[in-house]
Simulated assay, not measured.
Amino acid sequence: MKKVAVLFGGDSSEKEVSIYTGLAVVEAIKDEYKVEAINIESDYLSLHNKLLDVDIVFIALHGGFGEDGRLQKYLDKHNIKYTGSGSVASQTAMDKNKTKLIAKAHKIPVLNWTIINNSSEIDKIRLKFPLIIKPNDGGSTIGLYFCKDINDFKINIKKSLKDTSVQMVEEYVKAREISVPILDGQVLPIIEIFPKGFLYDYESKYKSDGSNYQIPAKIKDSLSRKLANDALTIYQNINCRHYARIDFLVAGDKHYFLEINTLPGLTSTSLLPKSAFKIGLSYRDLVVKIIELS
């Protein structure tokens, strides 16, 4: 029987989500494989000693070293197989600025944005209000701020820079939240998200009643094809593998790439399992498929 180590926890702001993902994965495959659950903190540099008899590592970490390529590089160094994208793709995908530049280079629409590294750059903003501030390397919409005017912006950018030193500032557009899951290079049913709150923030994502969903999304076939094609273009050009989720905004007939997530959540309220279920893949089947792809 194949032995699978499930890594979860970590030290990022998304630790709580990672624990939910990790425990759900362990529960799903405990009868299929020999499973070792490993809740790690910040030190992963001696991890290989615990993985000597492991066939594959299921990375259930979100954010931080678990998603930005550092852990993947470490596992590569020790010739340990793992789920999800490789180290270079993970590092690229974690950087929202880089991924937007890649999208723009392939003529995929993006909202106007800039990057701010310190408070001295605040007065250089040339974008139109309202604006959204978010960490350039964060996920789970943690640290998201809506700014209706310059006063809001000055207050919120100072708050955000205390949390992380590189912030993306993006023009806000009232639009539909759309997510495109990919599994093994194939687009799964597209999802529309209806957050209960003003923004699709952390609580909207992970509270059981935080959002409603439409799967497949009720959008024109022509727009669905564009979203699917653009999602695959980004996925392929970043050189992702196994699975990912690409998020867009849709306003009328226009769509805008937001970000790509190479280790999307796999909790009971997560989007990728909901989409996979629509094509007949149970949660267990989805997790097993990801492992077998690896």
Rank of each mutant, 00 (worst) to 15 (best):
D184P: 04
G185N: 09
G185Q: 06
Q186R: 14
Q186D: 13
V187W: 11
V187P: 11
L188V: 14
L188E: 13
I190T: 10
I190E: 07
I191E: 06
I193K: 05
F194L: 15
F194G: 02
F194W: 02
P195D: 06
K196P: 04
K196F: 04
G197K: 12
G197N: 13
G197F: 01
G197I: 01
G197H: 06
G197T: 08
F198W: 00
F198M: 03
F198I: 00
L199E: 14
Y200T: 03
Y200M: 03
Y202V: 13
E203Q: 15
E203N: 15
E203V: 04
K205Q: 11
K205I: 09
K205V: 07
K205P: 06
K205R: 09
Y206C: 04
Y206K: 03
K207Y: 14
K207R: 15
D209P: 01
D209R: 05
G210A: 02
S211K: 15
N212R: 11
N212A: 12
N212V: 01
N212D: 15
N212H: 06
Y213N: 07
Y213A: 02
I215A: 10
I215S: 06
P216H: 10
P216D: 09
I219M: 05
I219K: 03
I219H: 01
I219N: 03
K220G: 10
K220H: 12
D221F: 03
D221Y: 02
D221M: 02
S222L: 07
S222C: 03
S224F: 04
R225L: 15
R225G: 00
R225D: 12
K226C: 03
K226F: 02
K226M: 04
L227C: 11
L227D: 11
L227Q: 12
A228T: 08
N229Y: 06
N229W: 01
D230A: 15
D230H: 14
A231I: 00
A231S: 12
A231G: 01
L232V: 01
L232A: 01
I234K: 01
Y235G: 07
Y235V: 09
Y235W: 08
Q236K: 15
N237C: 06
I238K: 02
C240A: 10
R241C: 13
H242F: 09
H242S: 13
H242T: 09
H242W: 08
Y243P: 01
R245G: 01
R245Q: 02
I246N: 04
D247H: 00
F248T: 11
F248Q: 09
F248Y: 14
L249C: 07
G252E: 08
G252D: 10
G252V: 08
D253S: 10
H255E: 09
H255D: 11
H255V: 07
Y256N: 10
Y256Q: 10
F257G: 06
E259D: 14
I260V: 11
N261T: 14
N261C: 08
T262G: 05
L263N: 13
L263C: 04
L263P: 02
P264T: 09
G265P: 05
G265T: 05
L266V: 15
L266C: 13
T267A: 14
T267E: 14
T267R: 13
S268I: 12
S268K: 15
